[in-house]
Simulated scan of single mutants.
Amino acid sequence: MNSFNLESLILLQQLEKVTKNDIATWGGVSLPTLSKILNRQKEAPDSLFERVSDNSGYPLEFFQRDTSIPPAYELTYRHTSRTTIQELNAIAAEYSLLSDVADTLAGKMNIKSKAGWIDQIAPKTESITHADIERLASLARQYMNLPAHGAVSNVTRALERCGIVVAPLHALTPDDADTKLSSDGVTHPLSNDELLSIGFKEDSNAGDRDRFTKAHELGHLILHKYRRLERYSEMEREAHAFAGAFLMPEDDAKTLINPNIMLSDFLQLKASWGISIAALISRGYDMNILSRDRWRSLYMQLSARGWRKTEPITVVKEKPLLLQQILQKEYGDKNGFIDSFTAEHELGIRFGYLDVWAGGLIEQGSELGYRARRF
Score class of each variant (00 low, 15 high):
1 M>L: 06
4 F>I: 03
4 F>V: 01
4 F>W: 01
6 L>E: 03
8 S>A: 02
14 Q>T: 03
16 E>G: 13
20 K>C: 05
39 N>R: 11
43 E>N: 12
46 D>H: 13
46 D>M: 06
47 S>P: 02
48 L>K: 11
49 F>N: 08
51 R>V: 08
54 D>K: 11
55 N>T: 05
60 L>S: 06
60 L>P: 00
63 F>M: 00
71 P>L: 03
78 R>P: 01
79 H>C: 05
87 E>C: 12
101 V>Y: 10
107 G>S: 08
107 G>L: 06
110 N>P: 07
113 S>I: 04
115 A>N: 05
115 A>C: 02
121 I>G: 00
126 E>L: 00
126 E>H: 01
131 A>W: 08
133 I>V: 02
138 S>C: 06
142 Q>C: 03
144 M>I: 04
146 L>A: 02
150 G>C: 03
150 G>D: 00
153 S>G: 03
154 N>A: 10
156 T>N: 09
160 E>A: 08
161 R>S: 10
162 C>Q: 14
165 V>G: 05
169 L>A: 12
171 A>Q: 13
173 T>S: 15
174 P>Q: 08
178 D>M: 10
180 K>P: 14
182 S>Q: 11
186 V>M: 14
193 D>Q: 13
195 L>D: 14
196 L>M: 14
200 F>W: 15
203 D>A: 15
204 S>W: 11
205 N>A: 14
212 F>G: 00
219 G>E: 00
225 K>L: 00
226 Y>N: 06
236 E>H: 02
240 H>R: 09
247 L>M: 14
251 D>K: 05
252 D>L: 02
253 A>S: 05
257 I>M: 00
263 L>A: 04
265 D>L: 05
269 L>H: 04
280 L>V: 09
282 S>L: 10
282 S>I: 09
287 M>Q: 07
288 N>D: 11
290 L>G: 11
292 R>F: 12
302 L>Y: 09
309 K>E: 10
310 T>W: 02
310 T>A: 09
319 K>M: 09
321 L>R: 12
332 G>N: 00
336 G>K: 02
336 G>P: 00
344 E>P: 13
350 R>F: 08
352 G>M: 13
359 G>V: 07
360 G>D: 07
361 L>V: 00
366 S>Y: 15
375 F>I: 14
